[in-house]
Design a protein around this nucleic acid. Structure first.
Lengths: 307, 307
DNA sequence: TTGAAAGCGGTACCAC
DNA sequence: GTGGTACCGCTTTCAA
């Protein structure tokens, strides 16, 4: 009888329990999750969709999610959506057909994905995704506040011309933070170099900045990966960091600690966000739909401190 | 009728097919994977167990596996086993109870894991795991050959004292390659610094090497992460690379390209290995149980080339 | 060609 | 407190 396994439901005599457990041992019984799922309606699995799970930032997020999920008896199916023309919608449908109990999306939701999501009715939470979507709970770092903090620090170092590297566009909260900080200090906006959140993107952005007319004395990069890319561009051009150029980047990934010089960066509370994202799926609440998490400035060498 | 969906099994009249498809659209029918699994006995899922999915190397491997799996209609459940005292056995059991069609293990198999594996009977393939286990097919890079190639290159540069950074022990194929290459060149073995395959491990190993009596002119590191750790130790000690110290590392991860100077490294054919590992699970063959994949030397700056 | 029905392995309700 | 049984949704066999 299943009461023995599914302890708690009914009352079982000690003698019966032993008899059942003996049988389990002898027969080598293993519960079948598929049958359980079919009956119960829950797979104890969540889907995680990211642009690229090999990107250090998403790898870190994925790890944090996996740890939190495992602790709670859940497994994770991770899906990559970058590189497939529009694989996002089909990916969501695939996850839904596998009856995942919920989806954590850390990739910019496409229209087709949104459609798939609503028609499947799978509970979803958005992480690090800032084009808020109707009705979907979302959590993410305080990009704006982080950017302001980074700029405050650079300004405190006395820099007057500070460049921005990132995904340009007035919707970008980091760019807005950068711009507002400069304005608040009575300084003109510095040069902007757009680039993907990758090492390569940062590398090209760095080269672009060096080739422009308005060469900055400091750079705020939107990701650590961009930060190390910028670093490479500066090294190649023999620009010394932080003496001739200071850098502050964003994310607080492990990699940032081992660049040369080590990057001063804004750490995201990845583990906290991961746990909270999961909890939102496990125990849905109708409360505030958008939660911001403060970042923390980790001061290392690239900003000019501790020389 | 399910013949319409599961096209191919039986013959269906065109009119009936349309009628069914119309109903599917109207009712918003979504097939239930759990029911299918229960009947068919296949989940179209594989389990992947790694020490730490946030480690760049395993992140890269995981991504390659996910791509290959998605192409073939499979999903992946990734499980981390590092950090849990002995979570390996339970993790395997958990995967097995979820009825995964197979397991790809890239973590050193523990005894309890082996027991869980054989009692569950889940097909398994070992990746990058060199303590061969009875009967389990395994694939991995040619560590020994790669190490010899690295050493050949360093010797060609004229180095006489070449240190080894890695997991010391005569079973380590990279160490053996390092040792044999030195012996073949008529040179004594250089200093050894043991350390985990992490940036931190490399950092401490680098410091150890610098503090020893037998200071090398070149270092062979067992992973790129160790390579960047060594680099940091050298930078801090004001040892210039590659002028005063050359480095060659192992893995060919993206990170190695953006260190300063860029690391000369042995690239593993990760994508090929991932595809082959999956295929071994999908179409099991009784053929050779251990497959080695050649590595490729990527020459960059840390070895002293292209100055 | 198509409809009906059995059964995969659990869970939970119902009589006893 | 315990054994029997209906049902979750799909595949597949069988009869019509």
């Amino acid at each position: 009888m299943s009461y023995t396994i599914n302890s708690g439901t009914g009352a079982v005599a000690a003698s019966t329990r032993e008899r059942v457990e003996e049988a389990i041992r002898v027969l080598g019984y293993r519960p079948n999750a598929a049958a359980r799922t079919l009956k119960i309606g829950s797979t104890k699995m969540f889907g995680v969709v990211v642009p690229d799970s090999s990107n250090p930032f998403f790898a870190q997020l994925g790890r944090a999610l996996e740890d939190a999920a495992a602790e709670r008896g859940y497994a994770l199916i991770v899906v990559n959506v970058e590189g497939s023309p529009d694989g996002f919608g089909p990916s969501i449908r695939n996850l839904a057909s596998r009856q995942v109990d919920g989806i954590i999306s850390a990739a910019g939701i496409s229209l087709s994905a949104l459609a798939a999501l609503s028609e499947s009715g799978t509970p979803t939470v958005l992480v690090n995704q800032f084009e808020a979507v109707e009705g979907l709970p979302a959590i993410g770092p305080d990009l704006y506040g982080g950017a302001r903090a980074a700029m405050e620090h650079l300004l405190w170092h006395g820099h007057q011309t500070i460049a921005f590297v990132g995904q340009a566009g007035p919707n970008d909260l980091r760019e807005r933070g950068w711009r507002d900080a400069l304005a608040a200090a009575g300084l003109p906006a510095g040069p902007i170099a757009a680039g993907a959140y990758t090492r390569e993107g940062g590398y090209h952005a760095g080269q672009e900045l060096l080739a422009g007319d308005d060469i900055p004395t400091a750079i705020f990069a939107s990701s650590d990966q961009q930060g190390v890319g910028v670093l490479r561009a500066l090294h190649e051009a023999n620009v010394s960091v932080p003496d001739q150029m200071a850098i502050v980047s964003f994310d607080g990934s492990p990699e940032s600690e081992y660049s040369w010089p080590a990057l001063t960066t804004l750490e995201q509370p990845v583990r906290t966000m991961a746990v909270d994202a999961l909890e939102k799926l496990i125990s849905p609440t109708e409360s505030s739909s958008y939660t911001l998490y403060p970042t923390r400035l980790i001061v290392r060498q690239s900003c000019g401190c501790g020389r």
